[in-house]
Simulated assay, not measured.
Amino acid sequence: MSTNDESRQVPWLIREATGEDWPGIWQIVEPVVRAGETFAWDRDTTEDQARAKWFQSPPGRTFVAVGTGELDGVVLGTGEMHPNQRGGGSHVANAGYMVRAGQGGRGLARALCAYSLEAARTAGFRAMQFNAVVETNTRAVAAWQAMGFEVLATTPEAFNHPSQGYVGLHVMYRRL
């Protein structure tokens, strides 16, 4: 399933991830986690810990954007979606996305988001919420707002950015 503008050639295919995709996913996840700029994960997260956290069991899902053409078969981006809470909060989805270095600015994160929104809708979720969007990650904030999310609140100084110090975390939400 592709969610890009149909008027141009789509350079990727988004599909459910398999165990065989993990090496390509780890090539994306590791530098993002080590940088510590956009995800509130421990910067020393091990590969095994990351795999356990990223691969979601049902009703959660993990997916990849795999290149076509010149980058045929290369994992260019990945996402995961799961219930935001258990029990009475399980009707709201949560998701996260990471894109391979050098692939940003091409609409890939938005395509991953659109894929997860459709998957969440199909699975019966009523809304999607992002609990911790780093306010200095302005490209992501703008992308999610363009996808219909609104900033409900910002927790001041909730994220210790490695170069900008304590910055806020946005809670972002949209109905499905």
Rank of each mutant, 00 (worst) to 15 (best):
A119G: 06
E37Y: 00
E118L: 13
V92E: 00
S7L: 07
R121G: 12
T78P: 03
G60R: 03
R43K: 12
F125L: 11
H91D: 09
R175Q: 14
M98Y: 06
R15N: 09
V33T: 15
R126V: 13
A95G: 13
T18V: 10
F159K: 11
V64H: 03
G168K: 12
G102D: 14
R175I: 10
R34W: 04
P83N: 11
W54M: 13
E157T: 02
Y166E: 09
G107L: 07
W12L: 01
A146M: 06
Y166V: 03
L13P: 00
A50F: 11
D48A: 15
A50L: 15
T78V: 07
Y166T: 01
R174G: 07
N84I: 05
T3M: 05
D44V: 08
M1E: 04
T46D: 14
M128F: 00
Q145A: 10
F63Q: 05
P58G: 10
R51D: 05
F55P: 10
F55I: 13
T136G: 01
G19T: 13
A114R: 15
Y115L: 10
L117F: 04
G67Y: 10
P156H: 02
R15D: 05
V134G: 02
W12I: 01
E47A: 14
T46M: 12
L76C: 15
D42M: 02
V167T: 14
T18N: 07
G77D: 07
S90V: 02
M128A: 08
V134Q: 01
S163M: 07
E47M: 13
R174H: 11
L176D: 00
G88M: 07
N137V: 02
S90R: 10
Q56R: 15
D44L: 12
T155N: 04
P83M: 08
G148T: 04
Q49F: 05
H161K: 09
G102K: 07
G73S: 12
E47S: 15
V167R: 13
V134W: 03
A65R: 03
E30R: 13
G69A: 13
N131R: 11
A50S: 15
V134H: 01
V99R: 02
A52P: 03
R8E: 14
I28W: 05
A143L: 15
T18D: 12
N137H: 08
A153T: 09
T122E: 14
W144K: 06
G124R: 05
V133T: 08
E37S: 03
W22C: 06
A40M: 07
D5M: 05
V134L: 03
G87H: 10
T154D: 03
V141T: 15
A158S: 13
S7E: 04
Y97E: 01
D42Q: 05
G36R: 02
A143F: 00
E37W: 02
E20F: 00
R126P: 03
S2D: 00
E20I: 06
R106P: 03
L112V: 04
A111V: 04
Q9A: 10
W22G: 06
V33M: 06
D21V: 08
D44A: 15
G67S: 12
G88T: 05
V134K: 01
V141H: 06
R61G: 03
A140G: 09
F149R: 01
P31L: 08
G105R: 00
G102N: 11
A127E: 04
